[in-house]
Design a protein around this nucleic acid. Structure first.
Length: 469
RNA sequence: GGCGACGUACCCAAAUGGCUAAGGGAAGGGUUUGCAAAACCCUCAUUCACCGGUUCGAAUCCGGUCGUCGCCUCCA
């Protein structure tokens, strides 16, 4: 089986074949740390995590790099041109960002390089572009990339725009006034008074890097001049990624990225999140009402290339699904550990449904089909359970199936905590009471266990305790 | 104006030329159970925004119409 991914470059699904046998060099655009990340930002990171986990599931050796943009117009504005304030602000939001990733069970990238710590590499790259005449210095000392020198710009790569027909100038900011070409983009921004003490003295002059150059410099630093996968939100396609291609390929003379993979946006309750609407939703807001697993599942359960409308209803549904899955897992755990579930079994072995799960994900990460395979796996097992026709071995196999799928989905706890022996003792007492038809005592014990945090499930082969969430 | 995506049941959401249009949720009915919870079973789109066309055959391809949305130098 081969994974197929939709490549923005070709606008088609393509078979994924890494540049070098089983190694995957993956780069994901990270956050600009000037405020708390909202739930829409996390959708992209959760999607990237799904892709990364699936590649690892397929035994690829993935190296993932994610940048932290800790100096740009917004961060400088937020820190009033005070370098130490810049540091404290960006570190605070970087920390919040990483905390959110861990809450959502997003696996760590191999490196999170910061822009402010990659200045040398960026300068080096810009020097190379100057040498090759792709870059020029404007009157104010800023350096720009000249797209006239790079004929494929906007035509052959990610976007199909005609630079002459673009509505240039509508939102040209004041610090871009002396570019030679209307669409040239800045590589290095010369120092201005409002930048205060936020600047670097380099061979390029006193100033700071432009935004686009950091991703090129960082990816080259950690992954080399050619990458397998570069991902980010669809909004980055133009101009950010188009610019990255231009500057990287101009400097290296090599094809920068083999597969560009972009994630669609998230809207909330049918509306785009924006400051003016006042509907920016932070992870910490949602966490008050929903479990991290449910939030992760809700973010995951719409295909990454479709716009996701996150709603309260959807989150509640996801919460129910998580309960259903964890409940199932616990049932199987108990059966696996329960002595009475041994004996001759007539039904067939568990189906290898993780194969169907895999086949679904092979097709550009078709998550709906994949989740469908998960639900069908659970139903197969539950049918056997209801018929009392499941034993320790089968339960163990179903758990293995579940574990396979969860390696990719990341929506279940890694390991189940032990159930205290006293719980089993109480269950035995309740079973005695039930045999004696002492329903009052039986129900009293059940209530006590409920208070202790357990639901009971009576099956043909005995009672199973399940931890309440 | 240019580039692009989408419109499938009450809701969410797959299937992209061919067996009965996945799966989940909600709803109704039932089985099981001392009761409960959970689970399981049944029902829930002769039809895929609309109109034409191509084809033996279309939700899927082509043309048009209507509607929603994204991008066109802040953005995940």
């Amino acid at each position: 089986m081969t994974l197929k991914l939709y490549n923005t470059l070709s606008r088609k699904k393509e078979e994924f074949v890494p540049l070098q046998d089983k190694k995957v060099k993956m780069y994901a655009c990270g956050p600009t740390v000037y405020s708390y990340p909202h739930i829409g930002n996390y959708r992209a990171y959760v999607f990237e995590d799904l892709l990364r986990r699936y590649l690892e599931y397929k035994d690829y050796d993935v190296t993932l790099i994610m940048n932290i943009t800790d100096v740009d117009d917004k961060t400088i504005k937020a820190s009033d041109g005070d370098k130490s304030k810049l540091l404290s602000i960006t570190r605070r939001y970087e920390k919040a960002f990483k905390k959110g990733l861990s809450v959502l069970n997003v696996k760590n990238a191999d490196e999170y390089p910061r822009a402010t710590e990659t200045i040398d590499e960026m300068v080096e790259l810009i020097e190379e572009l100057l040498k090759k005449k792709y870059a020029y210095k404007a009157e104010d000392g800023s350096l720009y990339f000249s797209i006239d020198k790079y004929p494929g710009y906007g035509k052959e790569n990610l976007v199909h725009l005609n630079p002459d027909e673009m509505r240039a100038g509508e939102r040209v900011s004041d610090d871009e006034y002396d570019k030679e070409g209307a669409h040239d983009f800045v590589l290095w921004k010369a120092w201005k008074e409002e930048d205060g003490d936020i600047y670097w003295e380099t061979s390029l002059g006193k100033g700071r890097p432009g935004w686009h150059i950091e991703c090129s410099a960082m990816s080259m630093k950690y992954l080399g001049e050619e990458l397998d996968i570069h991902c980010g939100g669809v909004d980055n396609i133009f101009p950010h990624h188009e610019n990255e291609i231009a500057q990287s390929e101009a400097a290296s003379g090599k094809k920068f990225v083999k597969y560009w993979v972009h994630c669609a946006h998230l809207i909330y309750e049918g509306e785009k999140m924006s400051k003016s609407r006042g509907n920016i939703i932070l992870l910490e807001d949602l966490i008050k009402k929903y479990s991290p697993e449910a939030i992760r599942l809700a973010l995951l359960s719409t295909h990454y290339r479709s716009q996701l409308d996150l709603t309260d209803k959807k989150l509640k549904e996801a919460e129910g699904s998580i309960r259903k899955i964890t409940d199932f897992m616990q049932t199987m755990e108990r059966i696996r550990g329960e002595g009475r579930f041994v004996g001759p079994l007539s039904a067939g072995r568990p189906m290898e449904l993780h194969k169907e799960f895999e086949e679904a994900l092979e097709d550009d990460l078709n998550i709906s089909e994949a989740l469908s395979a998960l639900y069908r796996t659970m139903r197969n097992a539950n049918i056997l359970k209801d018929e009392g026709d499941i034993g320790k071995e089968e339960a163990g196999q179903f758990l293995l199936e579940l574990d396979h799928m969860n390696k990719v989905l990341g929506i279940l706890p890694e390991k189940e905590t032990e159930i205290d022996q006293s719980v089993y003792e109480m269950i035995r007492q309740r079973e005695d009471a039930r045999l004696a038809k002492d329903w009052a005592l039986s129900d009293k014990i059940r209530d006590e266990l409920f208070e202790m945090g357990y639901n009971l499930e009576d099956t043909p082969r005995g009672t199973l305790p399940k931890r309440r969430k």
